[in-house]
Design a protein around this nucleic acid. Structure first.
Lengths: 238, 238
DNA sequence: GAGCGTTGACTTGTATGGAAGTATGTAAGT
DNA sequence: ACTTACATACTTCCATACAAGTCAACGCTC
């Protein structure tokens, strides 16, 4: 109970409760592919690593299981869940539906202060170096969250958090072939249409933007077949 | 460890793990308003009631907290969460967006087998006695789940589960003034438009259907103000 | 050598005790 | 009468011990 510093350098605050912190640490490590699919997550091992007892680790596992990030098989072991192709497609569909309605609302309104904010964010996105995909993803997250907030649905964004986690795992594994500049162009198009109050075009733009992951997903399944749950091919969602 | 039968008659299967079962039992009791908002949930008390130790109860609490159904305040106590007006509105918005896209897909297709299935479900809905709202809600759940399934997004429906829980709490409290026949008519309209492949009309019908709760929500806030989290009035979501 | 049963070292699930923090009621002091 | 300090009975959180299931390796039997 001395260290409280994991092998990856994450330090736990002794004052706050342990299990929520562990949850965040492990969640981040899984999403960033620091703990790849099918990694074994031993309760006592992690407990020793972070200098705590098994119970907080176990409680973190429970939450991660509810988020679909780990799979605990009783009396057998706990493992990082493989990526469920169908779940990613379903989650992407949900995101597209929700964000399409959000953008429609915003385009009807055409709030100029919002447009200004989004434009400044896009400028920052362009300054992100090519080899720092993690930073771009944080910016991207902020962009989409700003959209939800402006429409008055910040809690709706929270609902999408679990869905986004699954998609982000995919993006972190294949970020080499991640068309950052293309994504930024799409962001610009969305903002332009919002400013022009061009509702159908804005909706089409956000939908196209969120379909982008469909391009990398099949290729990723070829490159890393072991990372996926069900390999029965699901050509597309229509 | 003899009884394993709660005060409400729910029996726990000794063979399966305890905490997931407890989770389901408590979840159901909360949604059905058997455990109203702000009820105190004592760890040792529930443990004694169901004849298990405190740990499984605690683990059930963690999941319920993640679902937004209970609120655990450290060293203070665990309570059934009050209904968050804004969260319900946000959840409703998400559901509308997703189900609108689902129905659009189905209307484009116009699957006659699906239409037949839905019609038979509607016939069953009409047979539900007026004083059995719980049974109607089960039928309603099945109806909407069938839509999601037919569109190939059964996992998307799972994502909406947590959202639906919050909405169902509202419906269970105010089911007296629950316009069952009106809801059935709306179901019929949706199916009709799907059959006719009338895409925009079908979308409008499902959106109107899911807006229905907005009628009962403000009245409910008047009747049961103590059941709500933030009483700052949020007139509507637009 | 092949097949089978057993043992033992794992795993997670549950029970229980103690540590730290919070609310409450009581008694002393003003 | 009112405030303040303290003792006590709670609460959740964490640590530890035990129970029960799984799996692999070993040794025995055939």
């Amino acid at each position: 109970m001395l260290s409280l510093v994991g092998i990856d350098g994450w330090a736990l605050d002794q004052l706050k409760a342990v299990s929520p912190q562990l949850r965040l640490v492990l969640r981040s490590r899984i999403i960033r592919n620091d703990l790849p699919p099918m990694s074994r997550l031993s309760e006592p091992e992690l407990a020793k690593e972070y200098g705590v007892s098994r119970q907080p680790v176990r409680e973190a596992f429970i939450t991660l299981m509810n988020e679909g990030l780990v799979e605990v098989r009783p009396q057998r072991g706990t493992y990082v869940k493989r990526i469920d192709y169908e779940a990613v497609l379903n989650g992407r569909f949900v995101r597209e539906a929700v964000e399409a309605d959000i953008v429609r609302k915003l385009a009807k309104r055409g709030d100029s202060a919002l447009v200004k904010d989004l434009r400044s964010q896009i400028a920052q996105q362009k300054n992100v170096p090519e080899d720092a995909p993690e930073e771009f993803m944080a910016q991207d997250e902020r962009f989409h969250q700003t959209l939800a907030n402006a429409a008055g649905f910040c809690k709706a964004w929270d609902y999408l958090g679990g869905i986004k986690a699954q998609m982000d795992r995919v993006r972190f594994i294949t970020f080499e072939e991640f068309p950052i500049s293309k994504l930024i162009e799409q962001h610009e198009a969305i903002v332009d249409f919002i400013e022009q109050k061009a509702v159908p075009q804005a909706e089409a733009a956000i939908r196209a933007h969120l379909r982008e992951i469909l391009n990398s997903l099949p290729r990723m399944q070829e490159l890393y077949p072991n990372y996926f749950e069900n390999l029965r091919d699901i050509p597309n969602e229509d």
